[in-house]
Amino acid sequence: MTNLTAQTRHHLVTARVENKAGVLLRVAGLFSRRGYNIISLAVAPTDDPAFSRISIVVDVESNLLQQVIDQLDKLINVVAITELDPEEATQAELLLATLARSVEHDADLGVLIQSAGASIVEMTDQATTIQLVAEPTVLDDFEEKLRSYGISELQRTGAVALPRLVQL
């Protein structure tokens, strides 16, 4: 996931949309109909309950991205839409993973969790559920490292993002 081609094809688009029934269908339907590939999608209300923010990581060639944005912008419920340059955005994603072993019996795993800044959410003798909030690429690396410990369940939320603060 972190190779260079994947990175250049992945674009983070964030849209402010009216918080109305069917908006997600319109957005998802547009991607499906026009053959754009969604890597992840996160949607939740903003501070103003009349609007939601949708963060979409889309897999398209850079020269197609403007077309994706223009088509999305035509949706009546889409109020504003921007591509966030990863350099100029604060991105975060949450990862939950259940591993089929107890961290108590595995010092290496404990070190990994600690060094990554992840936290233990739940633990039994046979299993541990951990969570980590970080930039998506950091989660990619972390997920890779977790594999050797036997992932039994894993769920990521997809990236959400805001423009980075500009220092005045």
Partner: peptide, 13 residues
């Protein structure tokens, strides 16, 4: 509205 979403400029329920 679901069926016609992709063939209308917009629709309302």
């Amino acid at each position: 509205t679901g069926i016609t979403a992709s063939v209308t400029k917009h629709n309302w329920l």
